[in-house]
Design a binder for these strands. Structure first.
Lengths: 323, 323
DNA sequence: TTGAAAGCGTTACCAA
DNA sequence: TTGGTAACGCTTTCAA
């Protein structure tokens, strides 16, 4: 492997000049440039990325922290990676599997300057601890955080959930249950708040057993059918789901058990993923890819000490066959 | 931010000794170590990752190259990231959106020593060009390549597809069509070969119009229904799909058009993803997560100049409601 | 337009 | 067990 020194010697110029060529400095004689470029090509030269990063003090790498990547996050990941790449940044994926210690690797890598910034999709560590890493570099989050230092690009779920609750009520359903995600996450709290507000507004009952939390996956959705529809008497006639995966599981298992959807049970998903489209599930459209872009540009702005204008985004309900 | 020099000065030792503490060298006096560790803690010291990488000549980063991440690749990505992380490696995701120039970024980063190795999920560049990057570091591929230098951890699709064809024939279907992926990929060729071999063995007809290629997504699958079932007379009674997404689209649209599955049309997916399970699609189980592990350990072996033992893997057909 | 030299923050070899 | 010092490969002043 050749390096700057060799190129410089062979070309008969100094390392400084070679470096200028590399960085497209205008203060280089065109002939000099050509000569140096020719020698670079001849020696199959490529600048060492680590040396550049060390010298410049920036890696052009951004870490992405998540428990694990699932279908719901996929548009976020793809959109973020794509946007970052367009701006010269690479994305490093850190998954923790829910292990707090492993998750800290991402934050430690920010501290060690392996990455210039961090985007959190989900995180399991204490928010206070996470916040203490803000001094090492910009951090933004998709998951909403309880920290003023860490901005979230997620939208206030209150508005989205409200759309869902009002929709099923408008369709004539009255016994509305919730399949929610992480028990004490802000998303869950906002959704619950929206639910209770709208239900109260319509003077509808809010039985405590009808708001389940900790429900994330297709399997969870499947299991839910048994749990929710147990009591033959007072059972819900509509379920709002944490995401489309849950809705898909619920729909599938309900059909298996001969529960008619949407006649006996309405199902509303969240995020409006491809899955919802395929299965014909009514879902609340969550502009995830756009949120990922917002996340990247927020980070880029902080890295470059510029103001960032966030794209304004909106929820939208897409009615399909399950309501 | 503090650095080695400051720690050394404050502790009253040399940089060399501080470095030894950092790297858990046994040749350090316990008292010295404690003193140095205490000062590190006090100054909130963390070694600079770039400096370490530059000095060691290794980044402990592996690049992952793909057009874009979809549901089918998800288990591969998650498993690879997880396995890499367990071994101290980070994963950088490079997506190209099918743009050959952008895809080269991943390979250029191998050349620039930003990553120590590369795993290809899919790649669109000419295989010859890709092969020329092998001299810069280990490369393995999921997608099978036409290059002896780049090993593939994918399994020979012949065996898997054969399972599918034999299964539908065993179920009594005789007019069997294919929805295949990338036209000239080795996967597609192997599958076609298996298809033709088994069909011939059973003396079944192989109409040319029944082997479509370039079919990848849910939408593609949906579109396929119209195309395949057009001719009211000689239409297929079974379709083997490129993956579960296609199968899902096909199933969904078939039902919409009142085509009875599996009575009038059998559908077989590929990969046996969660989606196949949810929708009850018969699918060929492809141990993707295990292939990702094989990929990582293959790379690790090459990086450490050790022999690697690959896990032996097998396809398996999972019968569900679509056949 | 060019060059010399001092960083950037480690590691690793050779002595002591 | 410790220290001195030369790598690692590039960028960035400051002068010329």
């Amino acid at each position: 492997m050749s390096n700057l020194d060799q190129i410089a010697k062979l070309a008969g110029f100094s390392k400084a000049t070679v470096s200028r060529v590399l960085n497209h400095s205008p203060h280089v004689n065109p002939e000099t440039r050509d000569r140096i470029l020719a020698i670079m090509k001849e020696l199959d030269y490529a600048p060492n990325g680590n040396a550049v990063s060390l010298s410049k003090g920036r890696t052009l790498q951004i870490g992405m922290c998540a428990e694990g990547i699932n279908e719901v996050m996929l548009p976020f990941l793809n959109s973020f990676v794509e946007t970052a790449s367009q701006n010269g940044y690479q994305t490093i994926v850190y998954t923790s599997g829910g292990d707090a210690k492993k998750e800290l690797k991402a934050f430690e890598d920010l501290r060690r300057k392996r990455v210039d910034a961090l985007v959190i999709i989900t995180c399991v560590n204490d928010h206070g601890l996470i916040g203490s890493y803000c001094k090492y570099g910009p951090i933004v989050s998709w998951q909403r955080m309880r920290l003023p230092e860490i901005l979230s690009v997620a939208m206030n779920q209150y508005d989205g959930y409200k759309l869902g609750v009002e929709h099923v009520i408008g369709q004539g359903y009255t016994r509305i249950a919730n399949a929610l995600g992480r028990p004490s996450s802000m998303n869950t709290l906002s959704r619950l708040e929206a639910y209770e507000d709208i239900m109260n507004k319509h003077s509808l009952a809010v039985p405590p057993g009808w708001s389940r939390t900790g429900i994330y996956s297709i399997r969870d959705g499947e299991r839910l059918v048994g749990e929710l529809l147990q009591g033959a008497k007072e059972r819900p006639d509509a379920v709002l789901c944490a995401n489309d995966l849950v809705a898909a599981g619920l729909l599938n298992e309900a059909r298996r058990q001969q529960v008619k959807v949407p006649e006996e049970l309405a199902i509303v998903g969240f995020d409006n993923t491809e899955l919802a489209h395929t299965l014909g599930i009514t879902s609340i459209d969550n502009p995830i890819a756009a949120q990922a872009q917002n996340a990247f540009y927020l980070l880029l702005g902080k890295l470059n000490h510029e103001e960032t204008v966030q794209k304004k985004l909106q929820f939208r309900l897409v009615k399909r066959a399950t309501t």
